[in-house]
Design a binder for these strands. Sequence first.
DNA 1: TAGCAAATGTTGCATTTGCAACATTTTACA
DNA 2: TGTAAAATGTTGCAAATGCAACATTTGCTA
Lengths: 209, 209
Amino acid sequence: MVNLFENINEQNIRKIKRFLMASTLTYPKGVNILSNVNQGDFIAIIDHGSVQFISTDYDGNKSIIEDIPEGGMFGSLTFPINNEEVSCITKEITQITYIEYDSITNDEIIKTDSYIFFIKNLIKILSDQVSEKNTRIEILTKKTTRDKLLEYFKSEARERGNKTFTIPMTFTELASYLSVDRSAMTREISYLKDDGIIKTNGRRITLLY
Amino acid sequence: MVNLFENINEQNIRKIKRFLMASTLTYPKGVNILSNVNQGDFIAIIDHGSVQFISTDYDGNKSIIEDIPEGGMFGSLTFPINNEEVSCITKEITQITYIEYDSITNDEIIKTDSYIFFIKNLIKILSDQVSEKNTRIEILTKKTTRDKLLEYFKSEARERGNKTFTIPMTFTELASYLSVDRSAMTREISYLKDDGIIKTNGRRITLLY
DNA sequence: TAGCAAATGTTGCATTTGCAACATTTTACA
DNA sequence: TGTAAAATGTTGCAAATGCAACATTTGCTA
């Protein structure tokens, strides 16, 4: 995953952050950081920790929209923040640096040496996010649990270049990512094994075709 | 929707396009434009016409991943283009300008007056795409057709700031967007009407709560 | 390391859904 | 403007799935 400050030395990072009017906040585990959010558009970079965007139903049903790990970023431009159903929860103690969106093109910063790297990193990160979401949409549009699982397994296999891989989350989280009932998913996984389509060993999966 | 060349005058657009090594191609209706795609990463801008990204199953089931209208853009960085299951079909006669991704930060172009506008437009478009996809993911993760419909209706109402709105596509296309069976969706819509939750008049929907 | 919480596995059952087949209406365009 | 294609509406039925309830295993931490 690309870091927003990749290929930029410490000195220039400090300079860019200054021009970007960056401010850094630290949150404890389990708080909703969107509750006291700045005015105006911003970009948030996760220095340490991780967060999760969660959508909650009128029924209390929760679905994870996105997991953002250490080094990741998110922005007010990419989330319907004013949607009261969406919250952004820290999964652990988390330090976040906020950047004002309008400042990314101010006069000072575009004269900075590493500015082009910064912009290219930002564009790359956004592109990767679109790509990731396209992958998830392609999976979610499959009608059956079986097809969702197979599409997910195929996308993992494609990404790793290997028909054997370890899924990077628990089965409980996978069910949430695929938006299916966990127990029904377990059932379908055993059918896939019975039919000789996959082999499993814990979270290690092998596609057999 | 933001256009990649918004706030840039004709002269500078020509200059930027030259530095970007832009090439323009025109396609007839109904062809897969990814079949003969350039080497390397690129950004494609739709000058006239529109395209649709479609994923096709081993069963032949098709699902629309994204509709891109006139003025829209897409890129090799945001689509798993090497995935043989995804195709990009022109919905009508379509003219597309291709830009080489690496050239968006070449030495010539960053000296151009309107470069900052160009970059800001690009970032805005990518952010909007992420945001749109987050909305769709939030809808697709709902378990029932009823909840998918309601989430979609709410997101439309939110966006328009009005509980009455006209859906911007056919019901057939909506079923595809929600990834549900069209006839089952029609059935669910009449249940929603019976239950007094919505009112409809053709594609005009009113949320009654 | 004991104990508790989370993850995983299993199954019956009611509900939801896709699918198919068909009638009717609307739209596009030759 | 006539006609074919697309969109819309309806319904029976079988398949898929969510849900609930429970047993078992794993992992964390006090």
